[in-house]
Design a protein around this nucleic acid. Structure first.
Lengths: 135, 135
DNA sequence: CTTGAAGCTCTAGTGGCTAGAGATTGTAGG
DNA sequence: CCTACAATCTCTAGCCACTAGAGCTTCAAG
């Protein structure tokens, strides 16, 4: 199998410039080239890029993915480190969810108290200005 | 009242370079200057910067804040537009929470199914590679 | 052999800051 | 008044993960 960058993009759902970007930051290996210096990819790259795409969709950052890829290439190794990265990421997500839930609540409270009058008496503006939610 | 940028930073909890950045992007007006061209701020700027800080903490982006500031300067106006921006933002937050909850679940599922063996049989790696969660 | 889509490299822009260099200014103590 | 030094100044560059565009070359179908 030997496919162009456009075909790789179609098969993985990753945009062409993004593929080149991933190559640049070392997530994808330097690919084979045609005589005219166009990239040609094989099945390995399709799999690897799918791995990268799904990891990104799950919110892993590039540094984590680099590490996950390295680990996945050592099949006999214990998966403790993989799990650690994933658990760390879950904790990260939990923190983000917590923050978002809290600020959503604050926003919703000020919206609920808004009497739909003028800006002058707007609770939303007031809360933003005072930086807390005193009534 | 006439305070330096450092004092403004202390009073609002916004870092000095960030204050200059906000001036650059038009969230803060061009301040008065000393003869030696150092910035001097008054009470208005303290209030405005507190407004900005709290809006940022609530996750509003700079474009939204610019609009909120403009609206807050027209006190006689109806607060419908303010509410609309805030509600749009709440919806945004809801979408983000939804996404995060979903991907947390997927990650947790693969972690739960991981037998803590080798990388070869690691469910986490498998899920990342296949891009779905079939068992 | 022509044509036109797809590829190439390179630079710059996004948002919201943050860091650092190197020069200047403000201010307190002597 | 002078000195020392913290604070401020401007400017550039970096962060992350891409995205957009210019201007050129190559591939592949007809």
């Amino acid at each position: 199998m030997s496919i162009s960058i456009g075909e790789l993009a179609r098969r993985t759902g990753v945009k062409v410039p993004t593929i080149r970007y991933y190559e640049g930051v070392g997530l994808l290996p330097t690919p084979a080239r045609t005589e005219g210096r166009q990239r040609r990819f094989g099945a390995d790259e399709v799999a690897r890029l799918n791995f990268i795409r799904h990891s990104r969709e799950l919110g892993f950052e590039v540094a984590d993915i680099r590490e996950l890829l390295t680990l996945s290439e050592q099949p006999e190794r214990s998966c403790g480190e993989v799990d650690a990265i994933a658990r760390r990421h879950v904790e990260n997500i939990d923190r983000r969810i917590g923050r978002l839930v809290a600020l959503r609540a604050e926003l919703q409270r000020s919206l609920d108290r808004c009497a739909r009058g003028t800006v002058e008496e707007c609770r939303v503006i007031e809360v933003l200005g005072y930086g807390d939610d005193r009534v």
